[in-house]
Amino acid sequence: MTADLLDELLHRVLPVLVFLVGITVVAELSEVAGVFEVASSTAARWARGRVWVLWALVVLLATACTVVLSLDTTAVLLTPVVLTLASRLKVSTAAFAMTTVWLANTASLLLPVSNLTNLLSLHRMQQLGVGIGGYVRLTWLPALVAVLVTVLVLGVLFRRDLVGHYEIAPPRVPHDRVLLVTSATVCLLLGPAFVTGVNVAWPASGAALLLVVVFLWRDRSRLGWALLPWRAVVVVTVLFTIVFVLGRWGLSDLLAAASGVGEGFPAYLRLAGTAALAANVIDNLPAYLALEPAAGDSPARLVAVLIGVNCGPLLTFWASLATLLWRERCRARGIAVRWWVFALRGLLLVPLLLVCCTAALAVVA
C-alpha cells in the first residue's frame, strides 16, 4: 500500500473508528444503566394496553435512537429490549422486530452520526464547502420521507398484528438511579452536541469517558474490555482497506459509469438505485466509498448516494452491519428470520423509499 493511500485511509477512517468506539461505549453503558428498558417499559404504560399505540411509541423510540445514537445502537441494544417487551406482553414479535431493523436503516439519514456512511460523507462535504448545517438542509426532507414511508408500509404489512390489547406489566426498577439519570441525560445531550459543527468523535468520546468515570464510582464491575467493539472495528477497517484498493483498480469507475451524471430527480434516482444495489451485494460501507466519486462535485448527488446505501440495504442480511447485528439478536431470542421473507418484504419497501426520498431530495436541492 502506497504512502498516500495509507495517509488518505487514516484521514478518512480514524475519526469514524473513534466515533464508533465512543458511541458504542455510551450505548452499552446506557443499556446496563437501564435507559432502554425504562424507555420501553414507559412506552408500554403510556400506551395503556393498546398494541398500535405501543407500536407507534416504539417507532418514535427507534427513530430517536437511530438519529442520535446511530443505527447500530438500535440494532444491537434496542432490538433485544423491544423483543423482550413484545414477548412479555404477548404481542407480535415479528412486527416489532421488523420495525427495529427497518427504522435502524431508514431513519439514519438525518444527522452525520446516524450512520457511518454519513460520517464518511462529511469529509467530502467539507471539501465541497458544505458544513453540518448544509448537510442537514439537504437531508431533513428525505429523512422525514424515509421514516414516514417505512412506517406506512409497516402499518400495512402488520395491520392485523397491531390491533387488540395487552395486559400492562409492572415497571422494572433500575438497579442504580444515579446511573440511569446520568446515562439518560448524556444520551439526550448528545443530539445537540452532534450538530454544533465540532468533529463528532469529540462529543462521543467525551460522553463515553464521562460514563466510564461515573460507573467507576457507582458500579465498576460493569466495566470491561468487552464494552469495546473490537470485531466491528476490525470489520470496518478491513472493508475500508479493500474498497480503497479496489477503487484504485477501477471499481469506482465501473460504478460511476452505471450511476450516470446530472442533477434532478431522474439522475438522483439512478444514482441512489445503483448505490442500493451495490450495498446489497457488497455491504453499504464499501458501497458508499466506491460510489463517492460518482457524485462528482455535487452535494445533492452525494446525498443521493446516501439514500441508496442507507435506505437500500434491506434485501440481504449482509447489506449493512446493523442488519447482521439485528439478525444475531433475533437468533439469541429464538426468533427465526427467513432470508426470503426478509428479502420479499424489502422488495416492497426499498423501491418506494428510493423513489420518494430522491423526489424529496430534488425538492430541497
Rank of each mutant, 00 (worst) to 15 (best):
213 V>E: 04
213 V>S: 06
213 V>P: 02
214 V>C: 02
214 V>H: 01
215 F>R: 06
216 L>Q: 13
216 L>R: 13
216 L>F: 12
217 W>D: 04
217 W>M: 09
219 D>C: 01
219 D>R: 13
219 D>N: 11
220 R>N: 05
220 R>M: 06
220 R>V: 10
222 R>H: 12
222 R>N: 09
223 L>D: 08
224 G>P: 11
224 G>A: 08
224 G>R: 10
224 G>M: 11
225 W>C: 02
225 W>L: 13
225 W>F: 11
225 W>A: 12
226 A>P: 03
226 A>C: 08
227 L>M: 07
227 L>S: 06
228 L>G: 01
228 L>H: 02
229 P>I: 11
229 P>L: 07
230 W>N: 01
230 W>L: 14
230 W>P: 00
231 R>C: 00
231 R>E: 08
231 R>Q: 08
232 A>F: 04
232 A>P: 00
232 A>D: 07
233 V>D: 05
233 V>L: 14
234 V>T: 09
235 V>I: 13
235 V>Y: 09
236 V>W: 08
236 V>K: 05
236 V>D: 02
237 T>G: 09
237 T>I: 03
237 T>E: 06
237 T>L: 10
238 V>D: 04
238 V>W: 05
238 V>M: 10
238 V>Q: 05
238 V>N: 06
239 L>G: 00
239 L>Y: 07
240 F>Q: 02
240 F>P: 00
242 I>P: 00
242 I>Y: 02
242 I>K: 00
243 V>Q: 06
243 V>M: 08
243 V>L: 03
244 F>R: 04
244 F>M: 08
244 F>A: 05
244 F>P: 00
244 F>E: 03
245 V>W: 15
245 V>F: 12
247 G>R: 10
247 G>N: 10
247 G>H: 07
247 G>S: 13
247 G>T: 13
